[in-house]
Design a protein around this nucleic acid. Structure first.
Length: 428
RNA sequence: GGAGAGGUGGCCGAGUGGCCGAAGGCAACGGUUUGCUAAACCGUCGUAGGGGCAAAACCCUUACCGAGGGUUCAAAUCCCUCCCUCUCCGCCA
């Protein structure tokens, strides 16, 4: 969503900068609606001023015990005109808002141009692939053989794209969640949040999932609630319609939540294993920052996600997404991809984005200097978030990268305290 | 789920049809006073849309008293619907 005055003054340059991202925006219609809204607003305000004045005159006449019938009749006519114009104005505003909510964010100047993922740019790489003495097995083969992953029973109780973790598998998932939360809260300065997993339509609209991507979400049948696809939604909405104190920024939150995604349109992709599920666990990082500090915060936040992989000793690379591969709301995104030996390539395990003021405008998230100060302006904050990390995919990476020739899994040192000292997962 | 009470500016709180965008208090900010702190006193102190202008300052104007409709010349105030909070009862982890 864009500021209307900005959009009016910069419609052509916005269209140009969005390029293919803005292909399905009806630009001419948008221009017409903006002008229409402005013209109708002026009209209705003039009439309202007239009505206000007229009504005051009526009050005065009545106080002086003078007849007021003529003035009242005249104002009745003005009132009817106002209603007519208001209806038109409301229609224009609704159409305009609906269009405005469907325009993607402008990419930051540092984002490489490109149509699709082939134009993404690798920023850096950390570590090396593990040296395996036997051909790498997939995490689903390893996990099922160890008796810690059960896809058949998951399909029975829920359906495709669900998983059951058991025994050391379940404990490893829990260990990862705790390891991530502990690192972020004690070393990286985040405040832990445990939010609702169901949110309302307004919250989904603020972060950008709605109105455009409703088919990606699970929705309740009897009430207008949605299952969160990421903790970004409830945590960013924590400060919706608030004015934050400038001194409180940056605000950093971390949250563990399950995430729910319909994965409509991904039929046939990643059908096996834990990579793409309808329900998965994620530890999320969310930051509210002042505009001038937000890109510095993006680097920092990405580093915090990387620190998890480094602690686990997992080989990864960081990718700067090009304009064509970024999500709807992002101005700049880094993807972190972890090495998976069985697939012999990197897979996304985290996505870290700066949304600049895009979500803040949709959700009315602002900040202000000290109250009463003359130069204290109210401005939209910048919001950022990143996975720190996707827990299921991290478990996949551990199974595959730490697999032994006998099919057992060595547990990374940092997780052992969370596993009751367990050093290796054997067949149960 | 049943019964009742209520939602007013950062907070508290007055206001039941007409100069009410809203008294008063607290907090905050600026200042005077002060050895320092405190107190006292003076002043400032909401958000947004449109216009004056290309912008800032400033000025004009409109809207906003939970949200949306309605009645009326005129609505914080009356009516309807919805949302939320609180209390009691029921149910429940």
């Amino acid at each position: 969503m864009y500021d209307l005055r900005f959009l009016r003054d910069n419609l052509d340059s916005t269209r140009e900068q969005l390029g293919p991202r803005g292909a399905d925006v009806p630009w001419d219609n948008l221009r017409t609606l903006i002008e229409q809204r402005r013209a109708l607003t002026t009209q209705v305000e003039q009439r309202r001023a007239e009505l206000k004045k007229g009504s005051e005159d009526v009050a005065k006449l009545k106080r002086e015990k003078q007849p007021a019938d003529a003035a009242m009749a005249a104002m009745k006519a003005v009132g009817e005109q106002i209603k007519t114009i208001e209806d038109e104005l409301r229609g224009a505003e609704e159409a305009l808002t609906d269009l405005n909510l469907r325009i993607p964010n402008l990419p930051h100047a540092s984002v490489p141009a490109g149509k699709n993922e082939s134009s993404n740019v690798e920023a850096r790489r950390w570590g090396t692939p593990p040296t395996l003495t036997a051909p790498a097995k997939s995490h689903w083969d390893l996990g099922e053989a160890l008796g810690i992953l059960d896809f058949d029973r998951a399909a029975k109780i829920a359906g495709a794209r669900f998983a059951v973790l058991t025994g050391a598998g379940a404990r490893l998932e829990r260990a990862l969640i705790n390891y991530m939360l502990d690192l972020h809260t004690t070393e990286h300065g985040y405040r832990e949040v445990l939010p609702p997993l169901l949110v309302n339509r307004t919250s989904m609209t603020a972060t950008g999932q709605l109105p455009k991507f409703e088919e990606d979400l699970f929705r309740l049948r009897d009430e207008d609630y949605f299952l969160i696809p990421t903790a970004e939604v409830p945590v960013t909405n924590l400060h919706r319609d608030e004015i934050l104190a400038e001194t409180s920024l940056p605000i950093r939150y971390t949250a563990y939540t399950p995430c729910f995604r319909r994965e409509a349109g991904s039929y046939g992709k990643d059908t096996r294993g834990l990579i793409r599920l309808h329900q998965f666990n994620k530890v999320e990082l969310v930051v509210f920052a002042k505009p001038e500090q937000s890109y510095e915060e993006l680097e920092r936040l990405t580093g915090h996600a990387e620190a998890i992989l480094q602690g686990l000793g997992l080989h990864y690379r960081v990718i700067t997404l090009c304009t064509g591969d970024m999500g709807f709301s992002a101005a700049k995104t880094y993807d972190i991809e972890v090495w998976l030996p069985s697939q012999n390539h990197f897979r996304e395990i985290s996505s870290c984005s700066n949304f600049e003021g895009f979500q803040a405008r949709r959700g009315g998230i602002r900040y202000k200097g000290p109250a009463g100060k003359k130069d204290a302006k109210t401005e939209f904050v910048h919001t950022l978030n990143g996975s720190g990390l996707a827990v299921g995919r991290t478990l996949v990476a551990i199974l595959e990268n730490y697999q032994q020739p006998d099919g057992s899994i060595t547990i990374p040192d940092v997780l052992r305290p969370y596993m009751g000292g367990l050093e290796r997962i054997h067949n149960e």
